[in-house]
Nucleic acid binder design. Structure first.
Lengths: 233, 233
DNA sequence: CGTGTGATTGACGCCTGTCAACGTCTGTGG
DNA sequence: CCACAGACGTTGACAGGCGTCAATCACACG
């Protein structure tokens, strides 16, 4: 992890229309700029660890982060990913609790740290910002609820298909239909909630059925419709 | 469902220290009182249905509500319960989306309806209220994340033990250690995320091991320590 | 008393987790 | 330049947890 001059963070944190900070006034933006710190992280770096106290939120300027919980037997469960312009760590800040997840860098990232008391201050004085944060929390809550239902009721096969579709929606495909996120088989299994071997076997089946192509960690999606059908959406 | 004179709702909605409305000013409380409507619901009544538009939140004055999602094969997945002084429906209101869950009455309830635009208005003008709501959403988010990890990684046996412990913490035991919430075996299975028959078999095993006693839907918890051990917490 | 809902038990088999062995690739150090 | 270690991926064997189907029982209610 390396501290950077704040200017190194492009303005994706606060000026883009989908930014969580879009409703701050220009005075508040100035304050944000003067307090935030920008860091560079490399693959594998841990931003915060489950159980640790965190004193602020992190806004992703670039890169990809995985957010996971560690189960009682030590196995990771990936809860979600975060990419550019997304905010992480706010749950612990607002609840004033230790982090309940670990945030680890999947692809080299530039990340802005925003002190928690500043976030709280903005919530209290800027109703529109409060609404945006509330909406963000509620959006994640809705996604979590769907996730619970899926994991509880669907087979591993269905869930893997759904995960591939979600990754496609979140990270897109390149010109040759390859998923624009690189995950190990183990990480895939930690999203689906299954054993690594099961993921490998199912991916092979999908390949045999010409639904996907595999080349190391590159996954080329050939037949979205088939995946949708398998996912039982 | 029967409309009641507002006075029929005791003041648990807004005056108790743990109420979500505890930080409203007296002016705002007056406004809340003039806009809220109070209804009586009976077991089985549906407060709102997945997919429907809801125009406000509901604050439980008394009774117990189950919140569930319906999976693609029609099976219910119970996400959580709500009891006195708890707020439901706020996710849809703030995100301005259709409800993603169904709320159904388990035990006869008195419930206050609060128009959504009033909630939004309070969030925007009262920073402390906004913080409380944000904390509520974040608290549920943290619980949902734990739930995801448990369902993904634990066995049905572990999850059932954990569910019994959670029910004990949420609804308590009476003088003779009987859980103070009455659920069908199917509802239990819809929390755990398993088949009804599996719940029945595991409950019988717990009974054989003298961990619980069963009498119809009454579950008497004899050995909390054993449950904790089984739950692998 | 018939009907319906919920609870229970047994039989059966498949999905899926676990264990083990082996192959592949990359980076490191001698 | 090669050997080796270590991480990751793959495949096979195997068992058992758990879902499904079916039959029966218990109980409440009109």
């Amino acid at each position: 992890m390396k501290a950077l001059n704040s200017l190194a963070c492009n303005d994706s944190c606060y000026s883009k229309p989908q930014s969580i900070f879009r409703h701050l006034t220009s005075d508040e933006i100035q304050k944000l700029l003067s307090f935030k710190e920008t860091f560079q992280f490399r693959r594998g770096n841990v931003i915060y660890t489950e159980g640790s106290r965190i004193t602020g939120c992190y806004c992703i300027s670039s890169g990809i982060i995985k957010i996971y919980k560690t189960g009682s037997d030590g196995k990771e469960q990936i809860i979600r990913f975060a990419k550019a312009a997304e905010l992480i760590g706010f749950r612990s800040v607002f609840n004033n609790e230790a982090a309940c997840t670990t945030a680890q860098v999947l692809e080299d990232s530039i990340i802005c740290y925003i002190p928690g008391d500043l976030m709280v201050q903005f919530v209290k004085i800027n109703g529109n910002f409060a609404m945006d944060l509330l909406q963000l929390a509620c959006k994640e809550l809705g996604e979590a609820n769907s996730y619970i239902t899926d994991i509880a009721q669907k087979t591993v096969r269905e869930r893997l298909a759904e995960v591939l579709l979600n990754l496609k929606d979140n990270f897109g495909l390149n010109q040759v239909q390859v998923l624009q996120i690189s995950l190990t088989r183990e990480e895939l299994s930690n999203i689906v909630g299954t054993a690594t071997e099961s993921v490998i076997r199912l991916l092979s089946e999908f390949k045999d059925d010409q639904i996907i192509e595999l080349q190391g960690r590159q996954i080329r999606i050939l037949n979205t419709a088939a995946l949708t059908k398998i996912a039982n959406l």
